[in-house]
Design a protein around this nucleic acid. Structure first.
Lengths: 140, 140
DNA sequence: CTAACTGCAAACGTTTTGCAACTTT
DNA sequence: AAAGTTGCAAAACGTTTGCAGTTAG
């Protein structure tokens, strides 16, 4: 299900630096999993992926780095599952299908999707984002 | 912030029974907090509210009962905060503002709000619901 | 040398679970 | 007695933190 594409470290290093992140070897490993095909990953997924084979990255570093990637805008958090946070390397405007039976998250291109008729924001606040989660259940 | 309206036990008993829930004294206490004004409550909120004064309801029972209320459709879960689940006694169609600075959740009436242009559901799945969470941040 | 980063383990807050005791029929 | 419900404590889970040790500029 989770595929891993090999990327040159130089590419990843450049990507991180472009966003003002010091590219350490652990951060490059973590960046690699987001550069690869699968874009919806929990912290646990990332931890497992970077620790396949001989590499060793601790949980603390995974969480620290994920927080850093979110802060710097390379990756965004998706709150869809009560149990865990997903990290999404697709930072363009889009929404999500969330399969409550499997816990799987998939993209809905924001192209064409429109949310209209929202009331104005409460005064003294500014918009962080609009999340649309379409929850669905697999039929038996 | 959290107000409590007194309700007759008979009313609450009837409400629970209507949904096929055996109305024990603890379940009545928990139902009471949802019958009252405030509709967005975390499990912790409910635990505190039912344990003001002399009443004693354990955490396990709070969680058991909340799960039961969700299963029977008296209350719905709202996933907006990564740290905790909200329970919402407003089961009609509506959406939410979520203030990321305070953790406060407030309703957006679905009246007038329209989500259009969503792609068809994946085959073999059926719709559970569409959640729209407008995340906002308090200005400093 | 210094500042930044990492790993471990322990702590944290929320939620779940096992089980004995208590109700209710 | 049987079935359903409750409370406690302990455990589980994802996440965060403190700090000593390591690495990189």
């Amino acid at each position: 299900m989770i595929t891993q594409k090999t990327c040159h470290d130089d590419e990843l290093r450049a990507w991180l630096r472009r966003y003002g992140i010091n590219p350490t070897s652990q951060r490059i490993e973590i960046a690699r999993v987001f550069f690869s095909r699968c874009i919806h990953l929990s912290a646990e997924d990332v931890f497992k992926l970077v620790n396949t084979g001989s590499r060793r990255v601790s949980k603390a570093t995974v969480y620290n780095t994920l927080a850093l990637l979110v802060e710097k805008g390379l990756v965004r958090q998706v709150v869809a599952d009560p149990a865990k946070i997903f990290y999404d390397s697709n930072t363009g405007p889009h929404h999500h299908f969330y399969d409550v039976s499997t816990g799987e998250l998939s993209d809905i291109d924001a192209h064409g999707v429109k949310v209209s008729g929202l009331p104005p924001l409460p005064v003294g606040t500014s918009l962080e984002g609009v999340d649309v989660v379409v929850r669905l259940r697999r039929d038996q």
